[in-house]
Design a protein around this nucleic acid. Structure first.
Length: 434
RNA sequence: GUGGCCGUAGCUCAGCUGGUAGAGCGCUGGAUUGUGGUUCCGGUUGUCGCGGGUUCGAACCCCGUCGGUCACCCCA
């Protein structure tokens, strides 16, 4: 009946995904899996809960994620955390299973929920879903270029017309150390003019100032030295080669020397893809990633390079124009009259055994109500089984899209219904049925 | 986490300087006592997010709280 006030509600920032919406989720997840499999990636699933120190080590002690966004708790004195991202767990699994001993290059993709205690808004939730992949064991820029190119293709596959790729290199350890020094030196004199956040960042994490949207920081950012001028020879070679290969692939990108990311583990290549600005506003980063050549070793493994990315599934769904069939069943069986339920159940089971989706009405509803339901479920065929039909050994088969109906022998009805379901939907016509 | 805006039926929303709720869609019944979708006619739905306060009287004003949203922080 009417409405009701729930006694218990879902946790803030954590949402139900209802069946009406799940089709689009499946479509995007499926497109992603196919796209990664075509590149030789295999799926990995890791736990949603990991030991807290994994994230502290991998992501970095002073990052916002670790400092204030993790769902952490103790269980029997063991510090645990709901994973805030997927790379740390994948790399932990890589090290734990000694995967480097079994193959030179490892390509894994994953999808699943992540948890971050931020203030929710559109496209940003406390339990959210990521699609991601890691390529471990190849240091070359070709690996980076291939990944970026494939991602653009994937986004186009799900109907995101023109994804914008932003690209940067933040070099490796020594490059970054020299740049940090130069940046701090350049910005310190104007410290008083910076925003409060950036003044603090000057000592904690000066790179992040480049990312600030605060108007007070605009001038400092504009005049700051760019990290691309500080690249070591090896870093520069990687960077130049990456761009050459992207050009060869014909994948457009924009160099953004101010692109920095909030996780400490990145080295060299950094990329971000944005799109659907009108629908996503400030959260239009669809996907971000980069190289993390040091993490495997940091987590106790061998010195092995790696690159990966993660995409926000909710954001992809907002940006995607994919449309998905709302049809729930292929065939609807409508029993009419007293003795018809049992034959209807048998008929429905036969239909399902032929591989079709079929719902049978067990409510004893009127024919009108049953046909309405058949229509609402998106059935192509409605099989009407009244006492008359049962007695005659036939079924009334109605093609709901073509608006035609015929009497079919019970023995033939499964094959005939299957043929109708497989046949193209006739062109829509104006009009009223007869 | 900081600040702004919002919260009325399942959905989208209306409700005039406070006088105790309305539309469309949906759902449902009928027109067609065995035929959907289209058409026509009828019916149905609310502790006006929650708690407190002001007032003779609150959906409307005030405080708190929860939720959403936008921006920031940050990120996917």
């Amino acid at each position: 009946m009417g409405s009701s006030t729930p006694l218990v509600k879902a946790v803030k920032g954590m949402n139900d995904i209802l069946p009406v919406d799940i089709g689009r989720w499946h479509a995007v997840e499926g497109a992603f899996a196919r796209s990664m499999q075509r590149l030789g990636y295999r799926e990995i699933r890791t736990p949603y809960v990991e030991p807290t120190p994994l994230f502290v080590r991998a992501i970095g002690e002073t990052t916002d994620v670790v400092e204030k966004e993790m769902y952490s708790f103790r269980h029997h004195d063991e510090p645990l955390t709901l994973r805030p991202e997927g790379t740390a767990g994948a790399v932990r699994a890589y090290v734990e299973h000694g995967v480097h001993n079994t193959e030179p290059v490892t390509r894994w993709y994953y999808h699943g929920p992540m948890f971050r205690a931020e203030r929710p808004q559109r496209g940003r939730y406390r339990q959210f879903y990521q699609l991601g992949a890691e390529c471990i064991g190849d240091a070359g820029p070709g690996c980076d270029a291939e990944m970026i190119d494939a991602l653009v293709g994937f986004l186009q596959d799900i109907g995101i017309e023109k994804p914008d790729v932003f690209l940067n290199s933040i070099g490796s350890g020594d490059t970054r150390a020299r740049y940090k020094e130069a940046l701090t030196a350049a910005l310190s004199p104007m410290k008083d003019k910076l925003s409060a956040d950036s003044q603090r960042r000057l000592t904690t994490n000066p790179l992040r100032i480049l990312d600030s949207k605060h108007p007070a920081d605009a001038e400092a950012i504009a005049t700051a030295p760019t990290i691309l001028d500080f690249l070591s020879d090896a870093d520069r070679a990687h960077w130049d080669e990456l761009r050459r290969q992207l050009d060869a692939l014909g994948t457009p990108y924009q160099v953004d020397p101010k692109l920095v990311r909030g996780l400490d583990y990145y080295t060299r290549t950094l990329f971000e893809i944005k799109g659907a600005y009108d629908k996503l506003g400030a959260g239009s980063t669809l996907l971000g990633g980069g190289r993390y050549d040091g993490m495997v070793k940091d987590l106790g493994g061998p010195e092995v390079p790696a690159i990966g990315f993660a995409a926000g599934l909710e954001r992809l769904l907002i940006a995607s124009t994919l449309e998905v069939s709302a049809s729930v069943v292929d065939v609807f069986v409508a029993p009419l009259g007293e003795g018809t339920q049992a034959p209807a159940l048998v008929l429905a089971r036969d239909i399902r055994r032929a591989g079709l989706r079929c719902e049978v009405d067990t409510r004893k509803a009127s024919m009108k109500a049953q046909l309405r339901r058949a229509n609402a479920l998106g059935a192509r065929v409605c099989l009407i089984l009244g006492d008359r039909e049962v007695n005659e050994g036939v079924v009334e088969m109605k093609d709901l899209a073509a608006h035609v109906q015929e009497k079919v022998a019970r023995a033939d009805v499964v094959a005939r219904a299957a043929a109708v379901v497989a046949s193209p939907v006739p062109p829509a016509r104006e009009g009223d049925g007869k």
